[in-house]
Design a protein around this nucleic acid. Structure first.
Length: 271
DNA sequence: CGAGCAACCTGCATGC
DNA sequence: TGCATGCAGGTTGCTC
């Protein structure tokens, strides 16, 4: 479910419901996420106030007067605002209960996600320290990406999915951006010209910005109902379309695996 | 050091 | 109907 646009959509959805609320209780039903949830937070957080939310890559940041919760949704995680009395479903692992009897409820069947706690400067946290620039930021630009790519032997798809290079480009958007840029996902990152990286950067910024914008229109549903945003499916050009004709040249789209991830591309348009 | 890949989990679709 | 298999939007941390 969650790539960067979904995380941003979630953040925007919960923000007005959590900011300036005081935390009454933290209920940890299942601490075994990607990393164990610090049991101390059930003691520390009650009484403190949520001051703001932010996002770094796919990490959702919830700042409080005592420290910061760093939330990752993994492959299957979601957060939503519920009435604190709403019955829990399977995989509702954590509730942050607030003073108006609502709760921020964390749900994650596969438990690849995380909820970390820090009282240190957040961006220096071990999980965030090594992250590359945000894809929509101006410091994700041609000189930067071109320089990073030199000498890299990995396929360009693996390269742009590396969070040390740029954050937030997951499997879906990597496939889409490479299609938009006309670059084969298999091509060696270090052997791609500056000009072609220019196209690729534009494509990455475009696909992510569009997904965030569309996500915004279904924001209320997303938060209220726990449903998938469902926005992207219509606009996807290659992901999940193996065998179907390329929209530009009608060649059937090819599916291969790169670094164990499903990769779909047009072998005619993408070189 | 970089590159490749197994591992962490559950749910769901598919095929026998 | 039941069971085995393979796949899924992410990331870390092993090996070589």
């Amino acid at each position: 479910m969650p790539e960067l646009p979904e995380v941003e959509t979630s953040r925007r959805g919960i923000d007005p419901h959590v900011c300036n609320r005081t935390i009454n209780q933290v209920i940890i039903r299942e601490p075994r996420l990607r990393w164990p949830v610090d049991p101390q937070i059930s003691r520390i957080l009650p009484g403190s106030k949520i001051t703001s939310t932010d996002r770094r890559g796919k990490y959702l940041l919830i700042y409080t007067t005592q420290g910061c919760l760093i939330v990752h949704l993994g492959m299957s995680g979601s957060v939503r605002i519920v009435s604190a009395s709403e019955p829990v479903r399977k995989h509702d692992h954590i509730d942050i209960v607030m003073d108006n009897h609502t709760a921020l409820r964390y749900h994650d069947p596969r438990r690849f996600g995380a909820m970390l706690w820090t009282t240190e400067p957040v961006l220096e946290h071990d999980r965030l320290r090594h992250l590359g620039p945000e894809p929509l930021d101006d410091n994700f630009n041609i000189p930067y990406l071109y320089r990073c790519s030199r000498g890299k032997k990995v396929p360009v798809k693996t390269f742009i999915m590396d969070s040390r290079i740029v954050v937030g480009v997951g499997n879906i958007y990597a496939n889409e951006a490479l299609y938009m840029a006309g670059i084969s996902p298999k091509r060696e990152a270090g052997k791609i010209s500056r000009q072609r990286y220019e196209r690729l950067i534009a494509a990455i910024k475009d696909v992510i910005a569009n997904a965030i914008n569309v996500g915004g229109t279904t924001l209320r549903d997303f938060v209220g109902s726990d449903g998938k945003p469902g926005y992207f499916k219509q606009s996807l050009q290659v992901y999940g379309r193996a065998g179907q004709p390329c929209q530009k040249c009608q060649t059937p789209l090819t599916e291969i695996r790169i670094a164990q991830r499903s990769t779909v591309y047009c072998r005619n348009c993408q070189r």
